[in-house]
């Protein structure tokens, strides 16, 4: 089983993969409408908005939690190099 390189979601079924393509390393939620993977900024903003919407967190807390999560995902390693 693969995990999405951009958000960590497990990808088990074809419908979990971007464009329903099991060859892809990212999931349907991390793909743009044309099938390409969202950029770092797009993904980050999307996750921050989602965290605020679903958990009601204060913006700066949501930003830090999202940064913590993204720093552990293969797709975004270059953005967190010290």
């Amino acid at each position: 089983m693969k995990n999405c390189i951009a958000c960590g979601m497990p990808m088990k079924k074809e419908s979990d993969f971007a464009m329903g393509d099991p060859q892809k390393d990212y999931c349907v939620y991390c793909a743009r409408p044309d099938g390409s993977m969202q950029s770092f900024e797009e993904k980050k903003q999307g996750l921050i908005n989602f965290t605020i919407k679903t958990q009601g967190l204060e913006k700066s807390v949501a930003e830090k939690a999202v940064a913590n999560m993204m720093s552990k995902l293969p797709a975004w390693q270059e953005y967190f190099k010290k």
Binding site: T51, T54, Q55, V61, N68, M69
Partner: peptide
């Protein structure tokens, strides 16, 4: 602090499906 962020992300997994 970092463990707290991991905890938030744990709830994000639940809230993703719940949402």
């Amino acid at each position: 602090q970092e463990a707290k962020f991991v905890f938030i992300n744990m709830q994000s997994i639940v809230s993703f499906h719940f949402n």
